[in-house]
Design a protein around this nucleic acid. Structure first.
Length: 114
DNA sequence: ACCATGACGTTTC
DNA sequence: CGAAACGCCATGG
């Protein structure tokens, strides 16, 4: 297990940003990584999401996709289309695991959030 | 210390 | 656009 430091600031920050994603919006792992100052650790953001399962908080990981707007992580959700269903429920168009109008629903923490 | 894996991203072909 | 290679970084064996 990770170093049980007092707090895994990195992971917690990822969760914090993910929770702040507005309804009907999505963001990318890289955007979060950049916001956290770890632009080259986009993969670590994904790792944090993976850990989000054992977080007591409900992390809207379905709102976090890759740079192309593809639901790369849908495979980690329950079932196979849960992630897509959640996004469509928020008014986001998803076709073939890819978000439509991605740039319109894209929420950049480094820009929107300050 | 080394190698393999991964919910990524960019570059190149 | 798609596939492959490379880069990047943390975790596990």
């Amino acid at each position: 297990m990770a170093s049980n430091s007092k707090n895994d600031n990195f992971f917690e920050k990822v969760y914090e940003v993910a929770r702040q994603i507005p309804y009907g919006k999505v963001t990318s792992y890289g955007a979060i990584a950049v916001y956290l100052g770890a632009a080259r650790s986009a993969r670590m953001v994904g790792w944090a999401m993976n850990n989000s399962h054992h977080q007591t908080n409900e992390i809207p990981a379905h709102r976090v996709v890759n740079r192309k707007g593809i639901l790369t992580g849908k495979h980690h959700f329950d079932g196979t289309n849960l992630m897509q269903q959640l996004l469509e429920n928020e008014g986001i168009e998803v076709v073939e695991n890819q978000i439509q109008n991605f740039e319109k629903v894209f929420w950049n923490p480094s820009k929107e959030l300050l």
